[in-house]
Design a binder for these strands. Structure first.
Length: 328
DNA sequence: AACCCCCCCAACCGCGAAGCG
DNA sequence: TCGCTTCGCGGTTGGGGGGGT
C-alpha cells in the first residue's frame, strides 16, 4: 500500500494529492483541532476544509477508530470477550451492532479480535468458524473459562496488569463524572448510546430482539434465552479511563496526542485456554454450559498455560461433538 | 546478525442505505 | 421518483513488529 499520493494517472488533481496510509501526528492534531472547532460530520467537507489531504472517509475512520476521546485501547477484558462471543452467536458478523454494546470499542477492533483470535482457533481445529460445532466449542470451553476468569477477578478484586488500558466504565453514569479534559466540542458529540452494564446490555438485547424480527440468529442453541444468564455475572468493575481521561490535567491537544500515542501499545492477550486448567464455573448462577460434559468432568486446577488451547483436549471435545448426539 | 515467518491491527475498499433537493 | 452526495458497514489488505531459526 502506498502511503503517498495516488499515481499521476488519477483523474483529478485533488485525487493526485490525496494521502494514504498511516496517519502522522501532525495529521491527527489537525483533525482533532478541526473537530474541536467544527464538530464531527460532513466528512468530505471536513477533509477539504481542514487542510488534510485525506478523503472524508479516511478522516471519519481515523476519528472514530482511533482519535475519538472515548475510544478504548488495549486488551479486551474477559467481560468484553464474553460479550463479544455471546453477541456474535446472536448476530453474526454485525460488528457495529456488537460494538454498540461494548462502549468504547469499535467495530473494527471487535472484528479484528474475532478474526485474529477466534477464527484462528477454528482454523487450528479445522472447523468452520461459523459452524455450530465451533459455536459449541465456544460455549462449552471458551465461555466457561471467561466466566471463571471474571469470577476470579471479582473475588480477588486485584488489578493485575491492565493499568493503562483499562477500558471505560460500562457504567456510563459514573464514567461521565470524570472530567475528560479537552472535551470535544458539544456539537461534535454524536448522541452515543450510553454504555451499559452487562446486565443492562443483555436485558436490552432480549428486549431488542423482540423488536427486531429481521435479526438473524446463527445458532439456535446459543440464541436460546437461557443460553446465558449474564445478569448473574459479577458486576463489571468501573473502568476509569479513556486516553483523554488519563491525561486529565492537560488541555493542550499536542500534549494530549503525545500522551495518546503512549497510552498503550500492548497487544491483546490471547484469551485462549488450556482445558486442563479449567474448572466448572462455581456459584449458583445459571451457567451456560451446565449440560456440557467437559465442564462437568475433571477440571484440574492449574494456572499455567492460559495462553494456549490444549489442543489434545480440544480434539477430544471436538470428536465428542462430531460423533455423539448433539449436546444442545 | 541476518533472514524468514507469522501475527496483529490500522487503514483501505466496495457497496448499500440514508438523506436531501 | 430520480439523481446525487454523504454516511456507515463489513470484508480485505499489507506494513510493521516480534519470535524463531
Amino acid at each position: 500500500m502506498s502511503t503517498l499520493s495516488k499515481s499521476a494517472s488519477s483523474s483529478s488533481e485533488e485525487d493526485a494529492e490525496l494521502r494514504r496510509g498511516p496517519w502522522t501526528l501532525e495529521e491527527d492534531t489537525l483533525l482533532i483541532h478541526y473537530i474541536a472547532s467544527h464538530g464531527e460530520g460532513r466528512w468530505n467537507l471536513l477533509a477539504k476544509c481542514s487542510g488534510l489531504r485525506r478523503t472524508g472517509k479516511s478522516c471519519r475512520l481515523r476519528w472514530l477508530n482511533y482519535l475519538k476521546p472515548d475510544v478504548k485501547r488495549g486488551n479486551l477484558t474477559p467481560q468484553e470477550q464474553l460479550l463479544i462471543l455471546e453477541l456474535h452467536s446472536k448476530w453474526g458478523n454485525r460488528w457495529s451492532k456488537i460494538a454498540q454494546h461494548l462502549p468504547g470499542r469499535t467495530d473494527n477492533e471487535i472484528k479484528n479480535y474475532w478474526r485474529t483470535r477466534v477464527q484462528k482457533q477454528a482454523r487450528h481445529l479445522k472447523i468452520d468458524s461459523n459452524s455450530r460445532a465451533f459455536q459449541d466449542v465456544i460455549r462449552c470451553v471458551w465461555m466457561p473459562r471467561l466466566l471463571q476468569k471474571i469470577e476470579g477477578s471479582s473475588s480477588t478484586s486485584s488489578t493485575t496488569s491492565q493499568v493503562s488500558i483499562i477500558p471505560q466504565s460500562l457504567n456510563h453514569a459514573d464514567s461521565q463524572q470524570h472530567s475528560a479534559p479537552p472535551p470535544p466540542p458539544v456539537g461534535a458529540q454524536t448522541p452515543v448510546q450510553g454504555p451499559l452494564s452487562t446486565n443492562e446490555t443483555i436485558n436490552n438485547l432480549e428486549h431488542n430482539e423482540k423488536n427486531s424480527s429481521s435479526e438473524n440468529c446463527t445458532s439456535p442453541s446459543i440464541c436460546s434465552s437461557e443460553s446465558m444468564n449474564i445478569s448473574q455475572i459479577s458486576q463489571i468493575p468501573d473502568y476509569p479511563t479513556s486516553p483523554f481521561q488519563v491525561m486529565s490535567n492537560s488541555d493542550d491537544y499536542s500534549t494530549l496526542l503525545k500522551g495518546y500515542y503512549n497510552v498503550d501499545n500492548s497487544t491483546y492477550e490471547m484469551e485462549t485456554f488450556n482445558l486442563a486448567s479449567m474448572s466448572a464455573p462455581q456459584g449458583d448462577f445459571e451457567n451456560p454450559v451446565g449440560d456440557c460434559p467437559m465442564v462437568e468432568s475433571n477440571w484440574v486446577d492449574s494456572d499455567l498455560a492460559d495462553s494456549l488451547w490444549n489442543m489434545d483436549e480440544l480434539w477430544q471435545f471436538w470428536k465428542l461433538q462430531e460423533g455423539g448426539p448433539r449436546l444442545f
